[in-house]
C-alpha cells in the first residue's frame, strides 16, 4: 500500500465486463485509464460508446456520448464519493481514507495480492456489497465490483503503459 503511494503517474488499457440482471447478456467496455497522483483519475471508455469520467480532487466530470459534460461535487453525493475513493484511494495508497469508508481485508503476497473492501456506511452498502482489487507489486491488475442483488462489473487492466 505504501509503495503504491509512491507511484505518481499511470496509464493503462482496460477491459470491463458488466453483468447486470437488467441486461440480456454481459456487456464488454474498453478504454483507457489515466492516473495522476494523488487525486486525479480519468476513465475514458472508447467502446461501445464514448464516455469520459474524470475525478479530480472534489469534483466529478462525466461526459457521455457527445453530450454537454456534467460536473458535480463529490460531497453532494456521498455514495459516489465512497465508490470513487475505492479506486482512487487504492491507487494513491491512501489507507486512511479507505479505512474511513470500508472494512479492508488484505491477503496474498507481494507478487499476487488481493484487497477486499466492504462498505461501512448503510447507504453505500445497500448498493455495493464489496469491491475486490487484485494486483502485483505496485500494479493493479483487476477491480471487481459486486453489487447487492448479484450484478457485478469486472475491470481488467491489461497493459500498464507508463
Amino acid at each position: 500500500m505504501k509503495e503504491r503511494g509512491q507511484v505518481s503517474h499511470g496509464r493503462a488499457r482496460f477491459e470491463e465486463v458488466k453483468y447486470s440482471s437488467l441486461l440480456e447478456k454481459p456487456i464488454v467496455l474498453r478504454g483507457m485509464l489515466y492516473y495522476d497522483a494523488p487525486s486525479r483519475v480519468e476513465k475514458r471508455t472508447e467502446s461501445p460508446f464514448e464516455e469520459r469520467y474524470v475525478v479530480d480532487e472534489g469534483t466529478v466530470l462525466i461526459e457521455r456520448h457527445k453530450k454537454r459534460p456534467r460536473i458535480f461535487s463529490l460531497q453532494d453525493h456521498p455514495m459516489i464519493r465512497a465508490f470513487v475513493e475505492g479506486f482512487r484511494a487504492t491507487l494513491a495508497g491512501d489507507l486512511e481514507t479507505l479505512q474511513m469508508l470500508y472494512d479492508t481485508h488484505f491477503s496474498g503476497e507481494r507478487q499476487r495480492w488481493r484487497l477486499v473492501l466492504v462498505p461501512l456506511h448503510d447507504d453505500m452498502s445497500s448498493i455495493v456489497e464489496s469491491i475486490h482489487i487484485e494486483g502485483s507489486d505496485t500494479d493493479i491488475t483487476q477491480i471487481e465490483i459486486r453489487e447487492v442483488g448479484g450484478d457485478s462489473s469486472r475491470i481488467s487492466i491489461r497493459e500498464n503503459l507508463l
Binding site: 458488466k18 447486470s20 469520467y53 457521455r64 453525493h77 459516489i80 465508490f83 453489487e147 462489473s153
Partner: peptide
C-alpha cells in the same frame, strides 16, 4: 449508457 457507466450502480 448511464447503466453501463462507472456510476451505473447508482
Amino acid at each position: 449508457r448511464a447503466l453501463l457507466s462507472t456510476v451505473g450502480a447508482f
